[in-house]
């Protein structure tokens, strides 16, 4: 296999890694906000203490954070076959990977959002209420922008972890960067694909860090 061949194959893997990364963020960032609403829900049923939405989201977060992501990817991919006898094809790989990553990361993001939202001073809500803003206006115009600024460093952490976690998709043979590197390395008995993969992840994260730093600076116009 020529070097050019290796690079092309790794390049394809790279694109798939980026696809998985972007799709996960696009789904899990809003989904995490929704989950955090459920986690903070005070809606009760039958009795004051029984809050089904909160309990369900708590259970969901607990499972997502308490079990290995690798296992979750396998469950999402092989589950339909073992549970319902459905036939799974390789075209399901990408969807399984995105679903598993999105629901896993949404759980982590939900807790970050919750921390941010709960850290907001009560006075902001009260001022908004007195001025006549609706609850939705208050949340999206006044609370959320300030929450985003507060939680940005924690979000950056998660995003960087996500870049590296995408390599876990190898367990379902989704042909992302790391899967490709492993395949080529085994075939060519060479370390070079791994080195190339390492360099790729490093620079990917370097870009993520620079972009997030820019956003943080952009938001630092107020305290």
């Amino acid at each position: 296999m020529t070097l050019q061949n290796i690079v092309t194959q790794l390049g394809e893997g790279m694109l798939k890694t980026i696809l998985l990364f972007v799709s996960t963020l696009v789904i899990s960032l809003p989904l995490g906000l929704l989950v955090s609403f459920g986690r903070m829900s005070t809606k009760s049923l039958f009795t004051k203490k029984f809050k089904p939405i909160r309990l369900l989201t708590q259970l969901y977060i607990s499972i997502m954070r308490g079990t290995p992501l690798m296992l979750q990817i396998m469950v999402v991919y092989f589950g339909p076959y073992y549970l319902f006898g459905m036939k799974i094809s390789t075209s399901y790989q990408i969807y399984a990977a995105i679903i598993a990553f999105a629901i896993n990361y949404a759980a982590y993001f939900a807790e970050i959002y919750r921390g941010g939202i709960e850290s907001m001073p009560k006075g902001q809500y009260e001022a908004a209420k007195i001025l006549g803003f609706t609850k939705a206006q208050t949340f999206f115009r006044i609370i959320l922008p300030q929450v985003m600024k507060r939680i940005l460093p924690s979000i950056t952490n998660e995003v960087i972890t996500l870049v590296k976690d995408t390599s876990l998709a190898f367990v379902i043979a989704y042909a992302e960067m790391f899967t490709m590197a492993k395949r080529i390395a085994a075939k060519e008995t060479s370390m070079i694909p791994f080195v190339a993969a390492g360099i790729f992840y490093y620079f990917f994260n370097l870009i993520v860090a620079i972009v997030m730093n820019r956003i943080e600076k952009k938001m630092s116009y107020y305290k």
């Binding site: 001073p121 006075g123 902001q124 001022a127 007195i130 300030q146």
Partner: peptide, 12 residues
């Protein structure tokens, strides 16, 4: 209209 002790302006 209400004016608060600690202002509660919207900082952003």
């Amino acid at each position: 209209g209400l004016v608060f002790q600690n202002f509660n302006l919207f900082p952003h």
